[in-house]
Amino acid sequence: MSSLAWMPIYTGDVLAETAGLSTEEFGTYMLLLFAYWQNGELPNDDIRLARIARLDPERWLAGRPSIEALFGPNWSNDGLDNLRNQAADKRERKIAAGRKGAASRWQNGKSNASANGNRISSANGKGNAEPIATSTISTSGAYEGKAPTHAHTHARGDIPLPINRQEAGQWLSDQGAFPGSENFDECVDLMMSGELDWSHVERLRA
């Protein structure tokens, strides 16, 4: 039998049956009970029993007669055997109930998924749900065969006369011209002098 996580202690019974023990003997007895509960038995070996009791061999042998009287043959304990069997049965029932509940939840989830799939199929009038079509952008029509204009293209109008070169460069950049491109500085100069026209701007965009 595997070890169990908890051990019931009936304090009235324990205190009654250990009334004749010293404090050390009581501690020894409880340590032996704990080991019995975990393993289902105790070794019939004084060296190992002394280690379980956390005593040196001499002290163990001195207290052994009082402790042994509380156990059955070969350090058996019918009371703990019955409690262990009850606890093990209860644990197995809980495990079985948990497995049954998990299986039921899985089956219900599977049934719900199947029902949802059937509803989708019925709504579509087909055995399988129809895929959702994705929209596409057509390249045909008025723009076919034409290169797109720059994203920053502005409606044509009068070219302003800037206050300084920085303002001129900013205006040209707003029209889609790159400041590092060829003829950019030349267009800035033309704009400052009022001689810039839209043909210059178009060439600068190209």
Rank of each mutant, 00 (worst) to 15 (best):
M1P: 07
S3I: 06
L4Y: 02
L4M: 09
A5E: 11
W6C: 10
M7N: 05
I9T: 09
D13N: 12
V14R: 14
A16F: 11
E17Y: 06
E17P: 04
A19T: 13
G20A: 11
L21Y: 06
F26T: 13
G27E: 07
T28V: 15
Y29V: 09
L32N: 05
L32T: 10
L33I: 05
F34H: 13
F34Y: 04
A35I: 04
Y36H: 14
W37F: 08
W37C: 09
W37R: 10
L42M: 06
P43T: 07
N44G: 07
L49R: 09
L49A: 07
R51S: 12
A53E: 01
P57A: 04
E58V: 15
R59T: 14
R59A: 13
R59M: 11
W60Y: 15
A62Q: 12
A62K: 14
A62T: 09
G63W: 01
R64E: 10
P65Y: 02
P65F: 03
I67G: 03
E68S: 12
E68F: 03
S76N: 02
G79L: 14
D81W: 00
N82H: 10
N82L: 14
L83W: 08
L83Q: 15
R84S: 08
A87K: 10
D89R: 15
D89V: 14
D89Y: 11
K90Y: 11
R91T: 10
R93F: 04
K94Y: 08
K94H: 11
A96V: 11
A97V: 03
K100C: 03
K100D: 08
K100N: 07
S104R: 15
Q107Y: 03
N108W: 07
A115T: 10
I120T: 13
S121V: 07
S121K: 14
S122L: 14
N124E: 07
N124P: 00
G125N: 06
G125F: 04
A133Y: 09
T134C: 11
S138P: 05
T139H: 09
S140T: 12
G141Y: 00
Y143D: 06
P148E: 01
T149D: 12
T149Q: 08
A151V: 12
A151Q: 12
H152P: 02
T153V: 15
A155T: 12
R156M: 10
R156S: 14
D158I: 12
I159R: 07
L161K: 12
P162K: 03
P162R: 05
R165G: 00
E167L: 07
G169L: 00
L172V: 08
S173T: 15
Q175L: 13
Q175V: 09
Q175H: 14
A177Y: 00
A177P: 01
P179D: 01
G180M: 02
E182S: 14
N183E: 08
F184G: 01
E186C: 05
D189G: 03
D189H: 04
L190T: 03
M191A: 08
M192W: 01
S193P: 01
E195P: 00
L196I: 02
D197G: 06
W198M: 10
W198K: 04
S199N: 14
R205I: 01
